[in-house]
Design a protein around this nucleic acid. Structure first.
Lengths: 222, 222
DNA sequence: CGGCGGCGTAGGGAAAGCGTCAAGATGCAG
DNA sequence: CTGCATCTTGACGCTTTCCCTACGCCGCCG
């Protein structure tokens, strides 16, 4: 869930934005002046800041500079001033976008989505899954301990690992890995499940994680 | 030096933008319609695209979608239409910013600086990478030991080195290095991977760092 | 006790994928 | 125009992977 800090000195604008953002499942914090904005940014750790330039205590550009001193969180500036120089100053201070009041709320939301999308890839996390002694990384397509899997083995393993604990029917595995028309070729499954167990299970003869459900299908037990 | 592709159907606007950008030490390419824009994007490899929505052949939003299919290069949209829905459509299609005509050239430049700054955070990471006996500097585009790489070789190597240990699919390599439409030309990969190994690997016949994953892609092993 | 269906293992032939050499385009500087 | 570097394209062995058949094991049921 994306966390947004809204900074503005007009309570009614704060309220309107909060309602719209909460309705779209953002987590929202509010600040009414530059001082509390800087404090909130450090405390609330937002993923995005919507910042009005016309604050009672500190100039908005100063707030941008203060934030950029220690964080690269995306900042969307709001302002009543439409002059080019104001925009240039704010953008060059480190803001990511500049919207002039009055603005359409839907446009602001679209701009928020745009800058959030651009900043998002930083929180990309590796999806690592443990199978016995081994660790599988589906994104990097790696298995710990110098184990290599073939393309078909990866497709099969991925299907199982993306549904931990759930039973996958033979029919589903065959159609998703080999394609429709192979729905009856159950011996492919035995073949490749055996290979996966040889490569991944501590004791391939007694599988602890790649479980057979006789007559039904297979299951990955974490 | 930042490379910018400008797309607009008005020659005079193209000229004005080119002059301003060249004066600020940008490298500039021009396109007059959507078709050549898509072609130029694949060929010129810009770091930023300034895109007019009102093109004679393809709708601007379509162009944005076509680009986003294979690249995440920043896109700043220009448009005469000031309606909110137009902005929302363009931004949600993948544009990074939206500027309505007429615009102040200085403001546009500031917005270009803003999106460029946001898209280029990887300059911070150390660009020196060891491959066997050689040292590769991605920023300076140099390899120790008087080894020279061609532009295509650099693009390919950069893609692999920026994802150490991670498998890069053939499809991804082909679309990112050669552009969409080359997704099936796996022959190029073998050709250029062989050249990279000849130039970088201690024993090109037994590659230790530029690894082949048969049927899937390639991987850089640090 | 003996057939039967589902499961695991082994091995071989076919096909697809890979590495390499070599030669034909293409573009650019002199 | 010529020469050079680079990018395409083609052809040929070699390896990996896939597909398929065969066989042994186990629990179930008649």
């Amino acid at each position: 869930m994306t966390r947004v800090l809204i900074v503005d000195d007009e309570p009614q604008l704060l309220r309107a934005l909060r309602i719209n953002l909460v309705a779209r499942h953002y987590e929202v914090a509010l600040a009414g002046d530059g001082g509390s904005a800087l404090r909130q940014a450090a405390q609330f750790r937002p993923d995005l800041i919507v910042l009005d330039l016309g604050l009672p205590d500190i100039d908005g550009v100063e707030v941008v500079c203060g934030l950029r001193g220690w964080t690269s969180v995306p900042i969307v500036v709001l302002s009543g001033r439409a002059g080019s120089q104001d925009k240039i100053d704010a953008l060059d201070a480190g803001a990511d976008d500049y919207v002039t009041k009055p603005f359409d709320i839907e446009e602001l939301l679209a701009r928020i989505r745009a800058v959030t999308r651009r900043a998002a890839p930083h929180e990309a996390q590796p999806a690592q899954i443990r199978i016995g002694e081994r660790t599988v990384d589906l994104a990097a397509k790696t298995v710990s301990g110098d184990v290599r899997l073939t393309p078909t083995e990866w497709r099969l393993l991925e299907l199982l690992l993306r549904n931990p604990g759930r039973l996958i029917s033979q029919r589903q595995m065959l159609t998703e890995v080999w394609g429709a028309g192979y729905a009856k070729e159950t011996h492919y499954l035995r073949q490749y499940m055996a290979q996966l167990r040889r490569k991944l299970e501590p004791d391939p003869a007694r599988p602890a994680h790649l479980i057979t459900e006789p007559g039904m299908g297979y299951r990955f037990a974490p």
